[in-house]
Each structure stands twice: as C-alpha cells, then as structure tokens.
Design a protein around this nucleic acid. Structure first.
Length: 239
DNA sequence: TCATTAAATTGTT
DNA sequence: AACAATTTAATGA
C-alpha cells in the first residue's frame, strides 16, 4: 500500500461504519513517514493514537527493568495496533520500531474511543483482533520454548501472513531474511538456513527480498511439531 | 531505453 | 563475523 486512503479502504473495520464516521476518520487520521529505526510509539508515553501501518514493517519490543529487550511481534502493511493502551487508558508498554523505512497512520484516541462506544461492528472487530493476537502470542510462547529455529521462522512467516490482521497482504511477503531474523530473534545466517529447509520441504519459495508461501497449512504444521524432538529440547529453554 | 555503478541482500564459510 | 556472489535501484548517456 502506498497511501492512507488505501489503508483505510482495505481496513475490515471501516466497512461496518456509517458514512459520517468514515469521513470523520478520513479527516482526522494523519500519515507520517517513519525512517528505518524510527519509533511509531515509545515505551512509557501517553497513548494518543491507534496506529496503522500504511506500508513497511515494525517490531514491538518490550523492555525488562534491567534494560534487556525482546521482540514480541511484528506489524506489517495493513495492520492496526495500540488499542490495548487506549482501552485501558494507560501509557504504552512497548516501543514500536521501524525495521525499514515505513509509513504509519495515526488515528486520534478520541475518535477511536467514540467508535468503540457507538459502533457494534467496530467493537466486534476489536474483539476479533485481540483474540487473533492472543492466539498468535500463545503460539509464540510455545515456539520460544521449543526453541527450534526452523519452527520459529515458520511461525514468524505464518504470523505475518494473516488476512484479517494484515489485509491486502499477498502470499508473497516482502520481507528480507535479516528482518525475519529481527522478528524471530535469530541470526541472519540461521534464518537463511531455516528458509532453505522450508523451501526444500516445498512449503515456500525464497526470492530476493521476499518469501512466497506455497503451503500455509504445511507451515503451520511444521510449527506444531510434526518432526518432534524428544525431551532434551526442554533443557535448552532456560536462558 | 540501455549501460554503469553503488548499495542492499543473500549464500556460504 | 567476514567474504563473495547476486539482485535491485539510481544515475546518466
């Protein structure tokens, strides 16, 4: 996607709204360019917007009190995030960092809350999105504990290919191997190795700066342990 | 439009 | 981490 208009046109939650609501959103939502490494939102700051990804790739990173950080999820083109802080009326608990030059959209907090209060369809969408995210988070936790890098790459890709959360995304994901590394917490060469394994298994095709998913179900199964490793895997999981 | 070059990305050690 | 090979994007004839 290349414009705010396209982002809003593709957004599933726009469809259930009245014309008046839609035009209010179009009038009040602003687009902003975000250079690679830039922040869409910062840990600790007041949450003033619901944030959409017009184009690009961001990662959500959380910080431990000691200053260590972990990537929780990636957000890609078509996605909207940050509703948690808005609904709970609390500061942001994470940074959203651009992994490449990106464009983001800011929908003001007041508009968001008004939609939440007045539109049943909008509320339904939020519940669905939160539910999908929860599912992804659970998958991510299991993945981290299984600690098989190949599975983690597979999970990272199936998480990114999600028509509801990231509408407008094709089966070809415009992602570099280094970016996958940042999202999955792996080194770039290890991602390269994992991708070759998945490609040889016929699950996807590796091209320059993009990955095409050939077998989504196969990738999902790959995560849930079709090639199980026995108990010694657990010994790894403590870091 | 084509050729050249610089920069980014990938494959491998 | 480092290196070579490959692909893309940018530039200018």
């Amino acid at each position: 996607m290349s414009s705010l208009k396209e982002l809003l046109a593709a957004a599933p939650w726009m469809r259930g709204l009245t014309a008046a609501q839609r035009s209010r959103i179009e009038a009040q939502t602003v687009a902003r360019n975000l250079p690679k490494g830039g922040y869409a939102c910062r840990n600790g700051e007041a949450a003033q917007h619901w944030i959409g990804v017009i184009d690009g790739l961001l990662k959500m990173v959380v910080h431990s009190p000691e200053g260590k950080e972990t990537t929780v999820v990636g957000f890609t083109t078509g996605g909207w995030f940050g509703e948690g802080s808005l609904l709970k009326d609390e500061p942001r608990r994470y940074d959203a960092v651009a992994l490449r030059d990106s464009q983001v959209a800011y929908l003001p907090r007041a508009t968001f809350l008004s939609l939440y209060d007045t539109s049943l369809e909008f509320s339904h969408f939020l519940v669905t999105q939160l539910n999908e995210r929860l599912g992804q988070l659970i998958g991510r936790m299991t993945s981290d504990r299984l600690l098989d890098p190949n599975e983690r790459v597979a999970l990272c890709l199936t998480t990114l290919y999600h028509p509801l959360l990231y509408p407008g995304t094709e089966r070809t994901l415009p992602v570099s191997q280094e970016e996958i590394g940042h999202l999955a917490g792996l080194s770039r060469p290890r991602v390269n190795y994992a991708l070759k394994i998945l490609e040889n298994a016929g699950l996807l095709r590796v091209e320059h700066r993009r990955i095409t998913i050939l077998n989504l179900e196969g990738l999902k199964q790959h995560q849930s342990g079709s090639h199980l490793r026995p108990h010694h895997a657990a010994a790894h999981s403590i870091r």
